[in-house]
């Protein structure tokens, strides 16, 4: 089984437009690293347990009456998981902390509203409106203010970072950052009805000058093109409840 998995890995690799194992942003990279670390450790534990199990069944023990608490339970049952948990938390908690959208003056603010079944994107600082596409500068943190106009959606660009749910009536803030220019694909991760499978979008990461150009180009044209159908009342209303992930 492990062999076939290895074969597949080498065949398909870990690349792909949605691959969390082919990261292009700091958050996704850290998670990918976490994964490989945990995967290695978990494989070792699994193999050790299976080998012990196999040997325990095969071997012919002399009948020793058991007395007291077995060392097996103390070491395997208590020490192993406790140590593993502590190590995991020491490594993992700071990673999670770095993903938090802490107050950051330099961050670009974008509002994204989920609808059945499209993504409404607004750049409040630049007066821009778009559908199903985001443009961001590279190496700059972006704070995405996520909310929903109808059911629960979830905003996810696997190669850049983690996902966060979009809930009606709340605004969650997700911090994303791309470390290389390119087009990244995102999709809805929370089942949201019939169009769920096709609720996708792209994030185009530009390097600094290209992003400035893009802003200039679109500042006038885009807005006119999309304004009529997009300025629904809920878009510019201050969110009623600034979310818990918010600073």
């Amino acid at each position: 089984m492990i062999w076939s998995c290895g074969l597949l890995l080498s065949q398909t690799g870990c690349t792909g437009p949605y691959s969390a194992l082919d990261p292009q942003g700091p958050a996704a990279s850290e998670v990918a690293l976490l994964w490989w670390g945990m995967f290695g450790f978990a494989t070792l534990v699994l193999l050790a347990v299976v080998v012990l199990w196999h040997y325990a069944i095969k071997r012919r023990a002399e009948h020793v009456p058991a007395t007291g608490t077995s060392r097996w339970i103390i070491w395997g049952g208590l020490a192993l998981p406790t140590v593993s948990i502590i190590v995991l938390l020491i490594v993992g908690v700071p990673v999670g902390h770095r993903m938090m959208p802490l107050p950051d003056e330099s961050a670009l603010q974008i509002q994204v509203t989920g609808h059945q079944w499209y993504w409404q994107v607004a750049y409040p600082e630049h007066g821009l409106q778009m559908i199903d596409e985001l443009h961001i500068p590279i190496n700059t943190p972006v704070h995405l203010h996520l909310t929903s106009a109808d059911v629960i959606h979830s905003f996810w660009v696997p190669r850049l970072g983690v996902k966060l749910d979009m809930l009606p009536g709340r605004t969650n803030v997700l911090r994303l950052e791309a470390s290389a220019a390119g087009v990244y694909r995102g999709q809805c991760a929370e089942y949201c009805g019939l169009g769920h499978a096709h609720m996708q979008f792209t994030v185009t990461a530009h390097d600094e000058p290209a992003f400035a150009n893009w802003l200039n180009e679109h500042n006038t044209t885009e807005q006119e093109r999309h304004e009529p159908d997009l300025l629904k009342p809920d878009v510019h209303e201050p969110a009623a409840h600034e979310a818990t992930l918010d600073e």
Binding site: V64, A66, G76, G77, L80
Partner: peptide
């Protein structure tokens, strides 16, 4: 983990 290792120990002995 306690249960898994108790099972292992039982098989072992």
């Amino acid at each position: 983990a306690i249960q898994v290792f108790a099972w292992l120990a039982t098989l072992w002995r």
